[in-house]
Design a protein around this nucleic acid. Structure first.
Length: 454
DNA sequence: CGAATTTGACCCGCGC
DNA sequence: GCGCGGGTCAAATTCG
């Protein structure tokens, strides 16, 4: 500013004091966007007193000019702050929309080959297709292992998102080949560029007597520890289906109800998964995606509509250390006053699970879908997809995609996905058999599949 | 004998 | 800085 301006400001008699306490918005403006005068005005953040030696008339004139100027600056500042606030809000919304679109895109891509055989294994969300040599063990799991769901969960969108956010450590510590490592790194970079560094987890709680529920993947135990607050030890497993697979899981019995087995998955598979696992992965990935894209909002409870099988709620926790999705399916479905639900009981289990502890002998299936969810983000409850609907043609992916597309509320998306699973009943990929009524028959023991927070 | 599991030691982050 | 707890490593052990 010119000399005149400088002098005028220096003789200001006002006690005008610019406080730029919430200057974050201002900082975002380029200097060029700022009127030169504004910069000057803001720079004068201290009170300036009048010199008594200056003629009174001149002083009042200067004072008036100064006050006028200050008022203008204040208005400008207010306007800029409001504009900045609006821009931030808009950016926020765009970011969320972008995340959701990413999920949908991924799901759509996967959906192009939804019902292929294992030989045509689909790369898990956003993951590259592996060379047969890189994943020699994959064919082994022709058994329609249901735990795919766990895998899927890990490998699905959650992977896409989680992996990107969490795989770095896994990759770096793994013994994968340089080629794989490079590819994985690329994916990670993509994710890292797109998402904040967060690590999502998806847990599965199953009511089972077995020590572990098979999920279609091959796991190797690498540790066991006693966790605080739980008399039951926690076992640590890593996926061995492919070299350098980033997925790990923890298995522990619920302290309150030892019949409930809690399996927590983390990371994305870097190899193809059995179709069933892939389908589930899509569902869980959608959940994780929503979780990750929702940022840290306040926890919210969501009660499903009365017409669906989902009587309780799912829980998504974005709180540290890891955002986790919790789906509690262990509750007794009979408590649900849904007629359809009871009709399916007690023999229909949407999620095929295999008792790993029994060496793959018997399969555990989740009880009739019984979801409990708490949503972290979006509060608006979306109408749930009726589980009673038995659209065999709709895949989990499709359902989830549609649900997410119509509303970001994950609860609904998950509900739709699971409902489609039920609807498919005796999918060839499932171990469970179709009893003709669209439900899967559960042999012997019953288990609940639950996604829970660790 | 090789692969998988067990288990104590170690590392790291976090709270006090 | 120290202790605690979660997670991982790796040698020892077990299993097929």
């Amino acid at each position: 500013m010119g000399k005149a301006n400088s002098s005028s400001s220096s003789i200001s008699s006002t006690n005008h004091h610019f406080v730029i306490s919430t200057s974050s918005s201002l900082n975002e403006f380029n200097n060029e966007e700022f009127p030169p005068n504004l910069n000057l005005g803001l720079s004068i953040s201290t009170t300036h007193y009048v010199s008594s030696s200056i003629p009174r008339l001149f002083l009042s004139t200067v004072k008036r000019l100064k006050i006028t100027r200050m008022i203008k600056l204040e208005r400008e500042l207010r306007r800029v702050q409001e504009e900045n606030h609006m821009l931030k809000t808009t950016l926020d919304q765009i970011s969320k929309s972008y995340s959701q679109l990413q999920v949908q895109l991924f799901i759509s891509l996967q959906n192009q080959k939804p019902h292929q055989n294992i030989e045509e294994n689909i790369m898990v969300s956003g993951q590259k297709r592996m060379d047969p040599q890189e994943c020699p063990k994959i064919d082994a799991n022709d058994t329609p292992v249901s735990n795919d769901k766990s895998n899927q969960e890990v490998s699905g969108d959650p992977h896409a998102l989680e992996d990107r956010s969490s795989s770095q450590s896994w990759v770096s510590s793994s013994s994968k080949s340089p080629k794989i490592e490079e590819e994985a790194k690329t994916e990670e970079q993509v994710v890292a560029d797109q998402l904040p560094f967060r690590k999502a987890r998806v847990s599965v709680r199953a009511r089972s007597e077995a020590s572990m529920i098979s999920d279609g993947c091959q796991w190797r135990k690498y540790g066991q520890k006693m966790a605080k607050g739980n008399p039951c030890p926690r076992a640590y497993y890593r996926c061995t289906m492919a070299v350098g697979c980033l997925v790990r899981k923890q298995v522990q019995r619920c302290a309150q109800d030892k019949t409930v087995l809690i399996t927590t998955y983390e990371g994305n598979h870097n190899h193809p998964l059995p179709p069933v696992a892939t389908a589930m992965a899509n569902t869980t990935s959608a959940a994780a995606s929503m979780l990750l894209s929702g940022s840290t909002h306040t926890n919210q409870s969501l009660t499903t509509s009365s017409g669906s099988y989902f009587s309780s709620m799912a829980t998504l926790s974005a709180s540290a250390p890891f955002p986790t999705i919790t789906l509690d399916l262990t509750q007794n479905p009979n408590n649900n006053n849904n007629n359809n639900m009871q009709q399916l009981q007690p023999r229909f289990y949407p999620l095929a699970l295999q008792h790993a502890g029994s060496h793959g002998g018997s399969y555990l299936l989740g009880q009739p879908l019984f979801l409990s969810q708490k949503m972290v983000h979006n509060s608006s409850a979306m109408p749930l997809v009726q589980l009673g609907q038995r659209n065999n043609s709709s895949s989990v992916v499709e359902t989830v995609s549609a649900a997410i597309a119509s509303d970001p509320n994950f609860t609904a998306a998950l509900a739709g996905a699971i409902s489609s699973i039920i609807g498919r009943g005796g999918n060839s990929n499932n171990i469970i058999s179709n009893n003709g009524s669209g439900g899967a028959v559960l042999p012997e023991s019953q288990s609940c599949t639950t996604f829970s927070k660790n």
